[in-house]
Amino acid sequence: MAKADNEVRINQAPPPDREILRMEKKKALKESLTGYAIISPWLLGFFVLVLGPILASFYLSFTDYDLLSSPTWIGFDNYVQILTNDPRFKTSIIATLVFVFVSTPLKLLFALALAVLFNTGRKGTGFFTTIYYIPSIIGGSVAIAVVWRQLFGRNGAVNDILDSLGIAGLNWIGNPDTALSVLIILVIWQFGSPMIIFLAGLRQIPTELYEAASVDGAGRIQTFLKITLPMLTPVIFFNLIMQTIGGFMLFTQAYLITQGGPMDSTLFYALYLYEMAFEYLRMGYASAMAWILLVLIAIITIIIFKTSSRWVFYESEGGR
């Protein structure tokens, strides 16, 4: 009886693993569909607002397009024109590179120095880090651009202070030699957020390392150079990448404070691109400029990544 029962069951039921497989497939499909439904807002946004525009931008970069008539295909003309026959492109690249490569290291230097100082565990650190962080929050606002224009203006506060010290003031914003530095100072002033990231990194360094170093009789400078700095290199690397990329895209402050001038001395790339696209309505040309910017940023990021294996120290080699 029992045996027959068994046989019947075996005959009736299909091989169990196939059944399970099919059910699992069905379940996976159902989960896939649920997944797509759940991420659908982003999916729609990605295709319509990101991927589509990226492809469109690439296409437009080979056309002449003024928004009014339909785009006309002109092949590589935009790129050739930009790279060989546009003096303002060259000016803007140089201004941007100088700006990025001066402001980023200085900003990170301030951030690191203050983070190390705040990590000495004295009272009131929380309060001071907050104060130092405020410029990072509002530094990109129009209000601060207004302030900067007056502070560094001919009759502004900076000249007033210099005057009282017996130093003759300058027309900081109106002078092509100093206009760039006004913007560099503005960016360095916002070192608060990389500082907080550094501070978080410093707190991750195990205290045993410092104890071991002090047992071995290492001085402060030696401890900093041999322990703090190497342990912090991943954070330095992260900040370097983020701040460099951010630097390339600075627009608002240059647009408002110096308007790219005087004599194009602060004509940052993002500013020139905006001018091309939305003032001259040369959408194709500006799209080609955007792709050149992307390539430039990619090259610089890759260079930083490539060199990172030489100077970024990871505790566990398998990690990250």
Partner: peptide
Amino acid sequence: FKFKAILFGCLMATVMLPVQITLIPQYIL
């Protein structure tokens, strides 16, 4: 879900994408 790794890669790539690339076509759109 299927292609999750690829889509996640797309998401991360857009974090770093310069706004200038999409700015003009988005405006046209």
